[in-house]
Amino acid sequence: MEPDLEVVQIRRGESFKAWSHGYPFHTVRWHFHPEYELHQVVATSGRYFVGDFIGEFEPGNLVLTGPNLPHNWVSDLPAECTIPLRGRILQFSEEFIGDLMKVMPELSGLAALLEFSRRGALFTRSTSDALAPLMEEIVTANGVRRIELFMMILGVLGRARKARPLSSPNYLPDPSGYMSAGMNKALAFIRKNLTQPFGETELAAIAGQSQSAFSRSFRRHTGMSLVQYVKRLRINLACQILMSDEQASITDICFEVGFNNLSNFNRQFLAEKGMPPSRFRRLLAHNIDAARAA
């Protein structure tokens, strides 16, 4: 089975994406993306797949996957059981880390690790424990503090010992093969232009299909219509901004993520998250204050 392309939307004005999710979650599937990904399991155990590797994971599992390496973590939970926080993820592009290493030659020692990660790098529990508080903080950090934490995380990874590769040396991910499918070309276009206006006719042309065939294929591929898919991605991006930028107004966020009507944004946010964005922000602030007081 070919992996699906995951749309990794790094917010304009930010260098990388740091986020968390529960389980089940829509990105939990056999997928790939051109970004590096540091994936830390916080809760649950189960089976994970990286390239041609299959293994068992538990809390503390910490893996760095290189560009376009297919992967998936499947938790072993009873039916209908949900977990609010399963893992934390840090994603950054090959271009970003490459440029950073050019500007800061002291980071050149990471080159071997990044190359190693193309097979999937599994770190020890001690490395995972050292990174845990940094991964927790970076998800909600702002401004310069995000960069500080990112560099600290790179430092821990760069000093880590006994990391082991997961996929076999002969396993070579073939993104050109994945991307040859017209649907994944359309998904890549959505990824790059999520906050801009586009329509099904344009995407169908990219996929090399008629509009009706594209509509049917898109629903089979993603489990939802194009409108639902784009709405979900834009609402998720809005949540990231609400979590990371306390100063951004809800109106500004509405237009930044691609909506052109505030009342429609509020209505769609409510339908997707079960609460309006203003309440989402208040609950988030309350949660942060409670954590600080603990």
Rank of each mutant, 00 (worst) to 15 (best):
D52Q: 02
A130E: 14
S167K: 07
A205W: 04
V28D: 15
S126H: 10
N266C: 06
R234D: 11
L131W: 04
L203I: 04
N287A: 13
I241R: 00
H221T: 13
L172V: 15
W30H: 14
G158V: 06
N193D: 08
I288M: 11
T251S: 15
A132G: 04
R11K: 08
A294Q: 09
N184G: 12
R146F: 07
G120E: 02
A132Q: 09
R282I: 05
S117P: 08
P67E: 00
I253Q: 00
V28W: 03
K192F: 09
F16N: 06
R159C: 09
M104N: 14
I138P: 07
Q268H: 12
A163Y: 14
L62S: 02
P78A: 05
A43Y: 07
S128M: 06
S117G: 03
S215C: 06
R146H: 04
T27A: 11
L226M: 03
A238M: 06
Q211M: 10
F92D: 05
R279G: 00
M135A: 04
V8S: 01
F32D: 13
R159K: 15
L100M: 13
V28R: 11
A111L: 10
L270K: 14
D245M: 10
R292W: 14
A271N: 07
F259P: 08
R191M: 10
V41C: 08
T222G: 05
S93M: 05
Y178D: 09
L38P: 09
R119F: 11
N142K: 13
L284M: 06
L270C: 01
G223T: 05
L62Y: 05
K273Y: 03
R145M: 04
K162Y: 12
L114T: 03
N236Y: 02
E37I: 08
H33K: 02
L107S: 01
P3W: 00
E80A: 15
R118L: 00
V144L: 13
W19G: 15
K162E: 15
V144R: 11
Q9F: 11
I89K: 13
M179K: 07
R29Q: 14
V144A: 06
G109L: 12
P197G: 04
R234A: 13
L85H: 10
L69E: 02
N142A: 14
G98Q: 13
I288A: 08
N142F: 12
T251K: 10
L90S: 12
A213N: 08
Y229L: 07
S117T: 07
F214C: 00
T222P: 04
A112S: 14
Q247I: 13
T140L: 09
E272Y: 07
R282S: 07
A79I: 09
D52S: 02
L90Y: 14
T82I: 09
R145E: 00
R234T: 11
V8P: 01
L131C: 04
S20Q: 10
T127S: 03
D52F: 02
F32L: 07
N236L: 09
L77Y: 05
M224D: 11
N193I: 01
